[in-house]
Design a protein around this nucleic acid. Sequence first.
DNA 1: GATGTTTTTGCAAACGTTTGCAATTTATTT
DNA 2: AAATAAATTGCAAACGTTTGCAAAAACATC
Lengths: 336, 336
Amino acid sequence: MEQKKLKLADLAKLAGVSTSTASRALNNNPVIKQQTREHVQLLAKKYNFSLNTAASRLRLQKTNVIAVIINLDAHTEQSIDDPFLLKVVSDINQAVNRRGYELLLSNSYMAGDDWHGYFIDGRRADGLIVVGQGKQQKNIDTAAKNGAPLVVWGDPKTPSNYPIVGSNNYVGGYQATMHLLEQGASKLLFLGDSGHAEIGERYRGFNNALEAHQAKGAAKLLKIDITSQAAYTAINNLLRGEGLNFDGIVACSDMVALGALKALKERYVSVPNDVRIVGFDDIAMADISHPSLSSVKQNTREAAKLLVDKLLNQLNGEECMSQEVEIELVCRQSSQ
Amino acid sequence: MEQKKLKLADLAKLAGVSTSTASRALNNNPVIKQQTREHVQLLAKKYNFSLNTAASRLRLQKTNVIAVIINLDAHTEQSIDDPFLLKVVSDINQAVNRRGYELLLSNSYMAGDDWHGYFIDGRRADGLIVVGQGKQQKNIDTAAKNGAPLVVWGDPKTPSNYPIVGSNNYVGGYQATMHLLEQGASKLLFLGDSGHAEIGERYRGFNNALEAHQAKGAAKLLKIDITSQAAYTAINNLLRGEGLNFDGIVACSDMVALGALKALKERYVSVPNDVRIVGFDDIAMADISHPSLSSVKQNTREAAKLLVDKLLNQLNGEECMSQEVEIELVCRQSSQ
DNA sequence: GATGTTTTTGCAAACGTTTGCAATTTATTT
DNA sequence: AAATAAATTGCAAACGTTTGCAAAAACATC
């Protein structure tokens, strides 16, 4: 039942020691006699004692919280339900927890524009993990400039004075494209907004693969939002307008690929016979789709670990660099 | 650049007033002269001032944080990447923000068993939103008993002394089943673990629909985990073992339905001609799947709003009741 | 101009930790 | 047993807000 919350002083009294001793005992400070430590800790457990983190944070000037900011371009805000993004958050959550930190889930709506002020000065978190560079990284830049410990999930090749962790998007785009070419496709379509940093890299890989294969001319870029709906519409329009003038698609995400796939199926274009497709991300659906979707797998688990490690290193005053995570092309039915 | 953080006292000095006046001015306390308030607020903006929330929380005994706990059965822990769950979290995030609260994303790993102690006594949050009842709700019960302000996403029909918000699962199961029967299916399969509260309700609806349609005998329950993989395997095994002895599937989630769909397609069972399927949740993929997947749509947006409202009401000392959110059957190609 | 009333401000305490330093207790040495 | 060293504990200050209460300032009334 509702009983008055125990404070450290109360616990100390129960244990017959001073507050300071109780504090040190709980923190397993070796300066306190082993026996006393155990005694206090036992009582703490018995009475379900927990420290007031507000007081603790105030005193220590440290929150043990990491804020994760979902940083999306305003008008695509909907795409927050791209399973991939959420997978990233979920993996970050795990990695953060494993390091003994808590995760404050946030977004530009709450944080406004001054992330350093809001999170760091406001003592809401010790550091920030930004998921997604967005198209303009002004907020990120100024937060970093103001000294906010900060790491970003995005395109590691982007020059920056904060560490960016992300996949080797160039290689991903290259491999996906090369794979399609090797399977015999020759008139390729790239689906995605090349203005976005990560996707731009994939597109660069796409182009270079074409060049290496001397197939440059027959390629086309369809700049669309990163949603399955946009892809569905785009492919539909294309088929209606120009007919089937391509035989391979490199999509900037699996959701986009799946949207395209649906449009093709509805118009009785056979995948992979008439058109081969490769997606990006390797979300769970890629395997479940029919035909199953070939995809460039991003190692979000490892990336999450790196992000957190780099952030904690920053908190310890170390300099950190951007880092690429290797990708892997997973070949399934849609491309062969 | 890195400058010493401004504290309220500094801001007060800059404004030429006392700390208390500055505090009241920032909180727009009408006892302070309008002109003074504006003056202080202007300076605050100019210097990017933000209050130290640690100090503020300590003083106010209030955090303005709501903790969201993803409460999954241990062995299915993987299913955290079910897009539906993450959609729920995302919607809760929005609703929480809209009320001016922040969202601490947590799980049993961090919180341990004593949620009241960890979150409430520990002053990490003012209240809890638990996503998923799990199969055993011991942690929830004791947290509530200890007086933690608490709401749960789950099956609202479950008797409890805390509010549960969730879909009308019974009606969902009933409607999905009735729809299949009306479309001519007669040998139905229910895919999902009926031991789980919400799914149990759906199964009850399933059975009652069969009864109402005098088709009870021909139904079968396949108890499987809530993952597409489990569904894929189960359907595959069933087809291999007994052949195609069913013509309709009610799945406990879309991911499950999609797993089943894949197994069927691979064995050249036509959907919806040979087998009709209805899923549950109406995730984005339902629409993109081919054939598109009929599904019982859960209104997570509204549910999230209700959850947060009920929680905040509790914080204001009001009693709250469980509440059902209406569902809607979305008919697509897979069932007709 | 003295008095009373209202508006506006400031003083100082409190929220519950943690920690430097001094004080005490215990162990070791002579 | 006294003197010294080492281990263990406690005192009190500090972290940065918010707020009850009293004081000061501004205004109104006679």
